[in-house]
Amino acid sequence: MDCVTVRDTIHDYAAGAVDPGTKAEISRHLEECPQCRLLLKQTKAYYAAIRRSRQAIPPADFIEQTMERIRHPRSRWRELVSTLFLPLKIKIPLEALGVVMVSVVILILYRPGSYLGQSPVAPAQNAAETDHPAVDRTSRPTIQRVKSAREDSVSESAPGVMLARDEERAREIDDAGTVQSESTAMDTAKKHVPGKIIIALNLHHTVEKNKTDATEYRSGMPSKSVGGSSSFYGGAVPSEEKSAKSEGPVQKMKGLVARNSGKIVKSTNNAPGSDSFLIELPRDNYESFLKELRGMGEMIEKSSKQPAAADRIILDMNLK
């Protein structure tokens, strides 16, 4: 037996807790090894000192104190605090870890640019990027989405803003239940005065000097005479220059609009015998305006939209 083994078993040897075979081996080694004999001496002194150490006596009222503690336990609150926080060495790091983890989760959920923490500038864009259902319905505009329309609106518009340059198209999208963002609604409100309707009227009439059949004239110059947004918005000759040639019909139209409490926003003389008007009219007066207009000539074309469903009506007619 070597010194290392003896060192490992010397306490059991000193305490008499080794089997006879091991005891004999250790005894043989101790006879030869002075270092291990010294170690044995120290170990025996150690156990002797422990045996001599006096037993502490519990307080005389130990049993009474303990029974009192059993009968009247500490308050539940103190027990709870003790359970939650003691031992502090273990539980404080655990609680700190919990706080850190919750903070990380909150940070992930509400980080700038995330869906819940998005800025109000680009709601439609974010709505298009994710189908996250948790939208703050109290603080943000309600977003109702139909996938195809959403894609259209996002592709055609700046993020979050659906341009309202084509109001007929916007109306169609709305009818389909598509995106109606807050900014779009504001744009629409700016374009349309509530209770008013815009009428784009193409008027064809005969010219005194050169009497031409209105229908023939129209078929000869379709791009200029037939109603369409381009015909009364772009490249028209100013009405002041040619107003003398069609003063009659223009005056008639002005009178008709005035009687229905409307106003002519813009009038354009496209060609001899062809005038375009942009008329703003109270929505309630539209029917009477239309009735009176029909009395003035033949209605060639009228947009299918009813005033209740559209803010702009396109009319094309031949004057008598």
């Binding site: 037993q55 502490a56 006596i57 519990p58 307080p59 130990f62 049993i63 104190q65 303990t66 503690r69």
Partner: peptide, 25 residues
């Protein structure tokens, strides 16, 4: 068993009052 428990607590805690409290607990 109180002597055994009390002395164990006393040796572990190294403080008589702490040992008393610990043994009662």
């Amino acid at each position: 068993h109180m002597n055994m428990v009390f002395n164990l607590c006393n040796r572990m805690m190294g403080d008589y009052d702490e040992a008393n409290d610990c043994a009662q607990e």
